Measured scan of single mutants.
Amino acid sequence: TFELKGKVGKVVKIAEDHYLVEVEGDKWIAYSDEKLSLGDRVMVVDVDGLKLKVKRIP
C-alpha cells in the first residue's frame, strides 16, 4: 500500500464520511481535508492502513 503514495486516481463515490477512489484499477476508501466531487482527479498523499489520504489535483 505504501507504493500508492504519489499515485493519481479519481473519486468514484461520495459517502457520508469518506470517499471511494479508484487508483490503478482498484477502489480504496479515502479521506481528504478538502471537499471533493465525483470525477475529481486526486493524488494519494498518505496511506493509513487500508485508507488513503488524498488531495485534489488539477
Rank of each mutant, 00 (worst) to 15 (best):
G25S: 10
L52P: 03
K53S: 11
V44S: 01
L50Y: 05
K53P: 01
S32L: 11
L20Y: 05
D26A: 08
S37D: 08
K53N: 13
D46V: 03
M43Q: 08
L52K: 01
D48E: 09
D46T: 03
W28H: 06
V45A: 07
K51P: 02
K10R: 12
V23L: 04
V47K: 03
K27T: 07
V8N: 06
G6H: 01
K5Q: 15
A30R: 00
D33A: 06
K53E: 13
L4D: 15
D46P: 01
V42P: 02
I14E: 08
D33M: 10
K5E: 15
V42K: 00
E22C: 06
L52M: 03
V12N: 10
A15W: 11
V54C: 03
V42Y: 01
K7T: 03
V45H: 08
I14H: 10
K51M: 12
G49Y: 12
L38Y: 09
K5H: 12
Y31S: 11
R41L: 07
V54T: 04
M43A: 04
V47Q: 05
R56I: 10
V47M: 04
K27M: 09
V12Q: 08
D33I: 12
G49E: 10
K53D: 14
V12W: 07
D40I: 06
K51A: 11
E24K: 03
K5L: 15
K27Y: 11
L50A: 07
I29Y: 09
I14F: 08
I57W: 07
E24T: 03
K55Q: 15
D26V: 05
L36W: 02
A15L: 14
R56P: 09
L52Q: 01
G39D: 15
G9T: 04
G49I: 09
K53M: 13
V44D: 00
I29N: 11
Y31G: 14
K7A: 12
G39L: 11
L20E: 04
V21E: 00
L36Q: 08
E34H: 08
V42M: 09
K5C: 15
D26T: 06
L50T: 13
V8H: 11
T1F: 15
K55F: 05
P58S: 05
S37E: 10
A30N: 01
R41T: 13
F2D: 15
M43I: 14
K53L: 13
G49V: 11
V8C: 13
K51N: 06
K13D: 08
Y31F: 10
E16N: 10
G25Y: 12
A30G: 11
V21G: 01
M43H: 04
V12E: 13
E3T: 00
V44N: 01
E16C: 07
W28V: 03
K27P: 04
I14K: 11
G9C: 03
G49Q: 08
V21Y: 01
K10N: 12
L52G: 01
K35Y: 13
A15V: 12
V11P: 02
V54S: 01
M43N: 04
E34M: 07
E24C: 12
K55P: 00
L50C: 07
G25N: 08
K10Y: 11
H18K: 12
E22T: 13
V45K: 04
D17C: 12
D48Q: 05
L50G: 14
W28L: 03
S32Y: 05
K13N: 10
G49S: 10
D33G: 06
R41W: 15
K55I: 14
I14S: 10
F2N: 15
D26I: 05
V21A: 08
M43S: 05
D40F: 07
V11C: 05
V44L: 02
K27E: 06
V8S: 09
V54G: 01
K35F: 13
V42R: 00
E16W: 08
G9S: 02
V45W: 07
K10L: 13
K10F: 09
K35H: 07
H18A: 11
K51Y: 13
K13G: 06
D17F: 07
D40W: 05
G39A: 12
P58R: 04
V11I: 12
H18I: 14
K13V: 10
F2R: 12
G39E: 13
V21R: 01
D17Q: 10
V11E: 00
K10H: 12
L36A: 06
E22M: 06
V21W: 02
L52N: 02
V45S: 09
L52A: 03
K35P: 09
M43F: 04
I57E: 14
L38V: 09
I29P: 13
V21I: 13
M43C: 12
W28C: 02
T1E: 15
V44P: 01
R41M: 15
A15E: 08
L20M: 08
V47A: 04
L20P: 01
E16Y: 09
V42C: 06
G49P: 07
D40R: 03
G39Q: 12
V23S: 01
T1M: 15
V45D: 14
V47E: 04
K53Q: 14
D40S: 09
A30M: 09
V12K: 06
L38G: 12
Y19W: 12
I57K: 09
K55D: 15
I14V: 10
T1D: 15
V11A: 06
D40V: 06
D40C: 05
G49D: 10
E22N: 05
W28A: 02
D48N: 12
D17R: 15
M43P: 01
V8M: 08
V23N: 01
L38T: 12
E24F: 02
R56T: 11
P58Y: 04
D46K: 02
L38N: 11
D48M: 07
H18W: 12
I57M: 13
D40T: 07
V8E: 15
L4M: 14
V21H: 00
E3C: 03
V44H: 01
V12Y: 10
K7N: 03
G25F: 13
S32T: 07
V42S: 04
K27C: 05
V45I: 13
V47W: 03
H18G: 08
L52W: 01
K5W: 15
G25P: 04
I29L: 13
V54E: 00
L4Q: 05
D26G: 15
H18T: 13
Y19N: 14
E3P: 15
G39R: 14
V8P: 10
D26R: 02
L4C: 04
K55E: 15
L50N: 10
P58A: 05
R56S: 13
L20H: 09
D46G: 02
K10V: 12
G6I: 00
I14Q: 13
K27V: 06
V45N: 05
P58T: 12
E24V: 04
V54N: 00
A30D: 00
V47S: 02
V12H: 11
E16I: 10
V54I: 05
L52H: 01
R56Q: 08
H18V: 12
V12D: 13
K7I: 02
S37K: 13
L38I: 12
V45R: 03
L52I: 12
G9H: 00
E16K: 08
K51D: 13
T1K: 15
D17V: 07
E16R: 11
A30W: 00
L52F: 02
E34C: 10
S37Q: 12
E16V: 07
K35M: 10
Y19K: 04
A15I: 10
V42A: 13
E16L: 09
K51C: 07
G6M: 01
I14L: 14
K10Q: 11
I14C: 04
D40Q: 09
T1C: 15
L50V: 14
R56Y: 11
A15T: 08
V44C: 04
K5I: 15
S32H: 13
K55W: 06
F2K: 15
R41K: 07
T1N: 15
G39Y: 08
L38K: 07
K10D: 12
E22F: 11
F2Q: 15
V21N: 01
W28F: 12
G49K: 08
L36I: 10
A15D: 14
L38E: 08
G25D: 09
G39V: 11
S37C: 11
E24Y: 02
D46N: 02
L20Q: 06
G6K: 00
A30Q: 00
F2T: 15
I29C: 06
V21L: 05
V44K: 00
S32F: 04
D48I: 05
V44Q: 00
K7P: 00
S32D: 14
T1G: 15
